[in-house]
Simulated scan of single mutants.
Amino acid sequence: MAHNGDAVVAAAPAAPAPAPTNGAQRQLKPRRISMEGLQRAMSDLALELSRDRKAVADSAAAAMQQLPAITEQVEDARCECCGMQEECTPAYVRRVRERYCGRLVCGLCAEAVNGEAESRHGGRTTEEALAAHMAVCGRFNRVGRANPVLMQTEAMREILRKRSKSNSPKDHGPGGALARSSSCIPAITKDFK
């Protein structure tokens, strides 16, 4: 479509030209569409667009009629793990409490608890996984929010502690400790000469 009064010129497929008699090739120019043809095409496009809009509006109205209306009051609920607050219906709060041992947990913490229950050695019960997740969230809320550098330092300490407990030689490389294979100083001195 043309915007701001710009002229629109469209190329129509060229009709096969008669073969030149003198052997020279003539260049074929595309035909120009008349203003009447252009207005007719724009009118057809507008009609198609209005039909599409009406079909979309009708399907949206039908979908809205199929959805049940929320008749319950919505209340603010706070996650007992991370402390995040979200709006929930009382029926939803009741279902979550039934599933997670009487605790109200947000969707993110619920996924973490489910993952913890499935991934640990041999699986844990939901109650054990919930207790482990609540301990991690509690420690983060006490330490991590107030002092993130201390939390990062503690995480590095845990990584090193797990590394030192491992007695597998393949975890530590040759000799059971971190070591380099050779010195790089002879290579550097060769470059200076």
Rank of each mutant, 00 (worst) to 15 (best):
A55D: 04
A55L: 15
V56S: 13
A57Q: 07
A57Y: 14
D58W: 07
D58Y: 09
S59I: 10
S59M: 12
A60S: 14
A60D: 12
A60L: 15
A61D: 11
A62M: 13
M64K: 13
Q65A: 09
L67Q: 09
L67E: 15
L67W: 04
P68R: 07
A69R: 11
A69G: 04
A69C: 01
I70R: 06
I70L: 14
T71I: 05
E72G: 01
E72P: 03
E72C: 05
E72D: 09
Q73Y: 04
Q73F: 03
Q73K: 14
Q73H: 06
V74R: 11
V74L: 13
V74S: 15
V74P: 01
V74H: 08
E75R: 15
A77E: 11
A77K: 13
R78Q: 14
C79S: 11
C79T: 07
C79F: 02
E80R: 01
E80G: 01
E80M: 06
C81Q: 11
C81P: 11
C81S: 14
C82W: 15
C82K: 15
M84S: 05
M84P: 00
Q85M: 14
Q85W: 08
Q85E: 14
Q85G: 10
E86D: 13
E86H: 04
E86L: 10
E87V: 10
E87T: 11
E87I: 09
E87R: 09
C88I: 11
C88A: 06
T89L: 15
T89Q: 10
P90I: 03
P90L: 06
P90G: 07
A91R: 05
Y92H: 08
Y92S: 02
Y92K: 05
V93W: 00
V93N: 02
V93R: 05
R94G: 05
R94M: 08
V96N: 00
R97L: 04
E98D: 07
R99M: 07
R99S: 14
R99I: 01
R99W: 03
R99Q: 13
Y100C: 05
Y100K: 07
Y100T: 02
C101F: 05
C101R: 12
C101Q: 14
G102S: 09
G102H: 08
G102Y: 03
R103G: 00
R103N: 09
L104V: 06
V105G: 00
V105W: 00
V105P: 00
C106F: 05
C106I: 02
C106D: 06
C106A: 12
G107V: 07
G107A: 14
G107W: 02
L108C: 03
C109M: 03
C109N: 04
C109H: 05
C109V: 03
A110N: 01
E111P: 01
E111C: 00
E111S: 03
A112R: 06
A112D: 05
V113T: 13
V113D: 05
N114T: 12
N114W: 06
G115Q: 03
E116P: 04
A117E: 07
A117M: 04
A117P: 03
A117T: 05
A117W: 10
E118M: 12
S119G: 10
S119D: 10
R120H: 07
H121D: 15
H121P: 13
H121F: 13
H121Q: 06
G122D: 04
G122T: 07
